[in-house]
């Protein structure tokens, strides 16, 4: 009798020992894993901090040397003796103008495609069309640059732009915006058009997503009182999704502002503000891409300062975009 109870006691003790060991190892791996995930999450914050700090450290000499003047100086003379004169005006101008023109082209197209996909498109071809548009976003930037350089640029310069120039040659203002003095493969406008193609999928994808948050009952009600398709889109879908659409447009703008390789190939790398969109220009990212590898001293610091400006600019735009999209999500969730 006693032996049996002792045996079972031993077994119990052995089991509980085992359990304790197993539990202990579980607790350990549990803690480790939870710690690892937390560390990784904080690493994301550190990454942003690291980017900002390294940019500020790198840009500091240029900030000290040029101060606010940097933003309003057009001259870019890195080799000037004894001290270089460097100003960000030309690349800022090129960045803003190229993104603006790209948005001007891409927003109507993107929204048009989204309206077609959500309101008109037969179900069977909706997915292939969406896929085709979204694959545009997958094509690497350098491929766009190459295609723009070899195909689109020469096509525009040889067949399209001369007739635009000829059409407006006697109209004041327009003839300086579309000046024929420098029409070539490489220009601000050609870069803008490539940018427009590149951001089109972002606008379309987000617009399709936010359009589909419109409760069907709203649209059905509008159709029910005899609205045409356009009236439903214009009076129900667009007002309901305005915040989201603007958010998507801002997100695309953030992309356009920072796009590098495609633009570097076809904008012509010229630090001159000419006022003509058919003239070569430069952008912040193109200036960095084409000059950074060989820069030194103040020149390099000024390029990093350009990078910092670009980061701040895109940060503001992207943050606004996310804010708007978040508001929409909250509303959709509520």
């Amino acid at each position: 009798m006693t032996t049996i109870s002792e045996n079972s006691k031993n077994l119990d003790m052995a089991l509980s020992n085992d359990r304790a060991r197993v539990l202990k190892s579980l607790v350990l791996s549990d803690t480790l894993f939870s710690f690892a995930t937390r560390a990784a999450a904080y690493a994301v914050l550190l990454l942003l901090a690291g980017i900002i700090i390294s940019l500020i450290v790198g840009a500091w000499p240029a900030m000290k040397a040029f101060g606010f003047e940097f933003l309003v100086t057009e001259r870019w003379a890195p080799q000037l003796e004894p001290e270089p004169v460097l100003g960000a005006l030309a690349p800022i101008y090129g960045t803003l103008v190229s993104s603006f023109i790209a948005m001007l082209i891409a927003v109507p197209f993107g929204l048009g495609i989204a309206i077609f996909l959500t309101e008109l498109c037969p179900h069977s071809i909706r997915r292939p069309i969406r896929l085709a548009i979204e694959l545009l976003a997958g094509i690497p930037s350098i491929i766009y640059g190459m295609w723009g350089f070899f195909v689109l640029g020469p096509f525009l310069a040889n067949y399209i732009e001369p007739s635009i120039v000829a059409a407006v040659v006697n109209i004041p203002v327009l003839n300086s915006i579309f000046s024929g003095e420098m029409v070539s493969n490489l220009s601000l406008f050609n870069a803008s058009l490539i940018l427009a193609i590149m951001i089109l999928p972002f606008i379309t994808a987000i617009a399709v997503d936010v359009f589909s948050t419109v409760p069907p009952v709203l649209k059905e009600a509008a159709y029910g009182i005899g609205c045409t398709t356009w009236e439903v889109v214009n009076n129900v879908v667009l007002p309901f999704t305005r915040v989201g659409v603007v958010g998507g447009v801002m997100l695309a703008l953030g992309r356009a502002l920072g796009e590098t390789m495609a633009v570097t190939f076809i904008i012509g790398n010229s630090f001159k503000i000419t006022g003509s969109i058919f003239a070569p220009s430069t952008t912040i990212s193109a200036a960095i891409a084409s000059e950074f590898a060989e820069s030194e001293g103040l020149h390099q610091s000024a390029l990093i300062l350009l990078g910092l400006l670009l980061f701040v600019l895109t940060f503001i735009v992207l943050a606004t975009a996310r804010f708007m999209l978040m508001r929409l999500e909250k509303r959709a969730g509520a």
């Binding site: 003379a77 012509g268 790398n269 070569p280």
Partner: peptide, 13 residues
């Protein structure tokens, strides 16, 4: 100079 301020032109690498 090795990188002068060109009054005109397209920059190539």
């Amino acid at each position: 100079g090795e990188a002068v301020e060109w009054p005109v032109g397209i920059g190539a690498a």
